[in-house]
């Protein structure tokens, strides 16, 4: 039923379009075979043609980058010098997921809600300090009737529907959140903005001017969109140096990072250990939670 209705709809749409887009010559308009249109052979819906002309589809169809693979290569660098050390392979479901903006958006909103402090508080008329004496007599003063001075319509009175401390946190399925983590990392990977470094990344001196040199040499600084450095644990020199180089980037330990941080700056420079930790913790949709019966 539904498909029939759709077909007839598309047919009438086509005749309409033929009338509109056809030449403005009234002769051709008269000769246009309006009724015979419904007898014509069926053609496919225009959705397919639109897919055909999608330029990205044509590009990706032959691009080997979009071939389905089990694992992807990742270069491991030595941290301050950025010398490539070796290739590592990561599962495609970890670092080569397609971009899902909707899931990323939900994850960022979820985090934002969760982070809200929610401590705004006002006093109602019952909480405001003071006597509940009637301000003036009910009648005879030539003025409005008033009860207590805590009334919300008076200055210094209570707030009728003011904010009170509450929890703004929203819910997001864990599997979806975990997918968002890996999608964010995959997005960085596909854009070539995920730089994985060997474990134990640190610098020689706890000097901001030294770390600025490193950032400038590697094109990570302010001109190149700033960088997020993620380490597995606290690195004294690196943290001290980058603490005052906020205009060039930011450093965070892996347990302080969330999806929003991964998406924010120009690139993500991550210690291998930290990457493994993230991927290990956020794979609930891949790994079965059911315990074996042994």
């Amino acid at each position: 039923m539904a498909s029939k209705g759709l077909q007839s709809f598309s047919r009438s749409l086509k005749t309409l379009r033929a009338l509109n887009t056809g030449s403005k010559d009234p002769l051709t308009q008269c000769l246009a075979p309006r009724l015979s249109r419904s007898m014509a052979t069926e053609t496919s819906l225009p959705s397919q043609t639109s897919r055909e002309y999608d330029p990205t589809f044509l590009q990706t169809a032959t691009d080997p980058a979009f071939e389905i693979q089990d694992s992807v290569l990742t270069t491991i660098y030595k941290f301050p010098t950025m010398e490539p050390i070796r290739f590592e392979s990561y599962a495609s479901k970890h670092l080569h997921l397609p971009l899902r903006r909707d899931i990323l958006h939900r994850a960022v909103i979820f985090e934002g809600d969760f982070t809200r402090q929610g401590t705004a508080s006002t006093k109602t008329r019952w909480e405001i300090h003071g006597s509940h004496r009637k301000i003036r007599p009910q009648k005879g003063m030539g003025m409005s009737r008033l009860g207590t001075k805590q009334s919300p319509m008076l200055k210094g009175g209570g707030k009728s529907f003011g904010p009170h401390p509450r929890d703004f946190a929203t819910a997001l399925p864990k599997k979806m959140y975990d997918l968002a983590w890996r999608t964010a990392l995959s997005w960085r990977y596909r854009r070539g903005e995920l730089i994985v470094c060997e474990d134990g990344m640190d610098i020689e001196y706890p000097k901001t001017r030294f770390v600025k040199q490193i950032f400038e040499h590697n094109h990570w600084g302010r001109e190149d969109g700033r960088s997020l450095v993620i380490t597995g644990s606290f690195k004294k020199n690196l943290f001290r140096a980058l603490r005052h180089a906020g205009e060039d980037g930011r450093i965070q330990m892996v347990r302080e990072v969330d999806v929003k941080d991964l998406l924010e700056l120009g690139r993500v420079i991550i210690e291998k250990r930290a990457l493994d930790e993230i991927l290990n913790e956020h794979q609930s949709d891949l790994v079965s939670q059911v315990r074996s019966a042994v």
Binding site: E67, L73, G192
Partner: peptide, 19 residues
């Protein structure tokens, strides 16, 4: 990849190396 990077100064991202 390593030698090219050393000679050119261009960092080749993983997404370009892989395919």
């Amino acid at each position: 990849m390593k030698r090219t990077m050393q000679l050119t100064g261009l960092r080749i991202p993983d997404a370009a190396i892989m395919p």
